[in-house]
Amino acid sequence: MDARLKVRNTKSIVFKSIIIFLAFVITIPLIIILLYIIKQGVTQVNWHFLTHVPAPVGETGGGISNALLGSIIIVALSSLIAIPTGILTGIYLSENATTRLAYYAGLCVDILQGVPSIVVGMVVYFWIVKPLGTFSALSGSVALAIMMLPIVIRSTEQTLKLLPDSLKEAALSLGVPYHRVILKVIVPCGFAGILSGIMLSVARIVGETAPLLFTAFGNPYLSAAITKPMQSLPLLIFNYATSPYDEWHNLAWGASFILLMFVLLLNIFTKLITRKWNIQL
């Protein structure tokens, strides 16, 4: 009897050790990548780097201001398109879960989430770039907004579904009309969850390159015109890292570092905000 117990104990110790070991192993590549990018990128970053456009081949210096501004504009524009649409769709799906429309809409959201980003880029190319006859920041934003939508929709839906019905009943029993119940009670109570979905979706798209290749296209100059081609961080990294020049490689490392820091900060910020806004039910 004792011997069998011992065997069992040993088995669970071995099992536990394997889990811990594997969990530890998978963090190693991540840490190596982080350290490598930081090591290569951090030396490139200074005020000059952030405020100047890339220098032509052969000249030293130069920065990524065009890509930085471009990324901010393109992401802001996609958020403007995807966040309101996504939240409203999420509200619909959580409020009318049993309808046929909700079933098919939910299915579409799942499929959309699985569409490769390069395919989204190509579709937007045929929808917007070709008819307008020019690459543009706007078309890039539309492509990224399509990438954002499923994340915003699902996180809104899941958050709101977790709220108890009693909350809605409480508001309705006070004579509050339905739209106000949603906007003043349901959405504020699920705010933390919705916000973290938004943050995640932004973190997701800010590094997307493929959909921008033939939509925003890239631009070596500083530009804020949304109907013209625009540079962005992932595009700059893609173009410069594949170039044969060392200066440009360094620029790409610096841009990678900035992009990484942005995503990292966004994640930390999301954690803090959801903790602060989280509502005790």
């Binding site: 909350l167 009943e169 109570c189």
Partner: peptide
Amino acid sequence: RYKIGMVFQRPNPFPNLSIYDNVVAGYKLN
């Protein structure tokens, strides 16, 4: 529902509102 109020089986104050705002929720939310 203005004229006929209701209290439910489980207490359901609005978790996003203060005590003060919960009391006047019928006015504020409207």
